[in-house]
Design a binder for these strands. Structure first.
Lengths: 197, 197
DNA sequence: GCAAAATTACAACGAACGTTTTACATAGTT
DNA sequence: AACTATGTAAAACGTTCGTTGTAATTTTGC
């Protein structure tokens, strides 16, 4: 696709919109501000997008797919041919949450989704869930299943464990401790022989 | 304190504000809507509160303290004289997240705090953190320490474990599985004798 | 060079909002 | 009944916002 002025403007709008939506949220993000940061006029934004909501949806879904692909590759790389599982999980968590300028805007948008979902159609929210979080969790669950088959993990429900792990590393920042808890739990070891287990 | 018309109106405003802030968020919650649900005029709201932000802060902090007291008592009740720890933790998680009409509005407000914090002064956010989540987590950490002293938990860092547990039960809804993972982890049991542990 | 496409700049529109003003009504107290 | 405190209803004010219209300008393609 040739670089044309029209494409340039489109890209600039998408980029600026992602930054502004991520920074101040859907409602507070004004078309004026987005236009200013994109270096275009508001009229131009409306030449490319029907309205604010369509802009939001397009920006959100495009970056969700992009980020999901990166995360899937990351999971593949980190959890294949594992020799030291704790270290691999810590490395995955660290890489997963490492600040990356090109994705920071997207993550900022994502972190707001729960609170802002009532402000746009539910199908946008669901499309994001499908394109982003769920897709990545499925990839993680598949890896967990393989690790289970290799005897490295004891996960009766890999999907649940994947969901739990992603919640833990998203919300709690000390990854060595998180991974340790994920693998070993907090029950004293002598209790593994206790009745009820 | 005698029930006066003024107190009645104040209470009605606070109650309606909590519901509206929780339902649609700080920005979208209009004074008109709150007044309508409270059954007062907007003028009356300004007779009681300087502005929208003060209303929000007062509503938020009052209910945070109230809910924290309930949670502290709950933790005390559920994690004292424990005979079956897994069952006690599951019961705590279930009670913690059980729908309670009188607190639903508060929890809805709380769930939005992360995304909405940029819209009001940071000190409101921090005051909420102190009056609510942190306070409850400290109570939970103290309980975990006692359970550790009783040999029922192996928690080197009770504060961390408390934080992790509260994140887990807040974000993941299958409490038996969550508690199982929290206590036992996902490492196969034979690996507890592996090197590197 | 010319026509078409795209953009800019700006004004305009209608709506929504937080807040204040104003006049009148209601409630409580003495 | 008189006075004070409080509430109501509605208008007004200033601001912000999403969106559209319009004329002029710039860029692109032939």
């Amino acid at each position: 696709m040739a670089v044309t002025r029209r494409n340039e403007k489109y890209d600039a709008i998408v980029r600026a919109a992602r930054a502004v939506f991520g920074r101040v949220g859907y409602l507070t993000a004004s078309i004026d501000l987005i236009a200013s940061e994109a270096g275009v006029s508001t009229r131009t934004i409306y030449n490319h997008f029907d309205n604010k909501e369509h802009l939001f949806a397009e920006v959100l879904l495009a970056s969700s797919r992009q980020v999901a692909e990166v995360h899937e590759a990351m999971i593949e790389r980190r959890l294949t041919n594992v020799t030291d599982l704790p270290a691999a999980l810590v490395a995955l968590a660290e890489e997963w949450n490492r600040p990356q300028p090109e994705f920071d805007d997207h993550f900022a948008m994502s972190r707001r989704m729960g609170a802002e979902r009532a402000h746009f159609p539910e199908k946008i929210y669901q499309a994001w869930r499908e394109a982003g979080p769920w897709r990545v969790q499925r990839a993680l669950a598949e890896r967990f299943e393989e690790l289970r088959d290799q005897g490295l993990l004891d996960v009766p429900d890999a999907g649940f464990a994947a969901h739990l792990f992603s919640v833990m590393i998203a919300e709690v920042r000390d990854y060595p401790k998180v991974v340790h808890a994920f693998l070993y739990g907090y029950l004293p070891r002598s209790c593994f022989e206790c009745p009820g287990r």
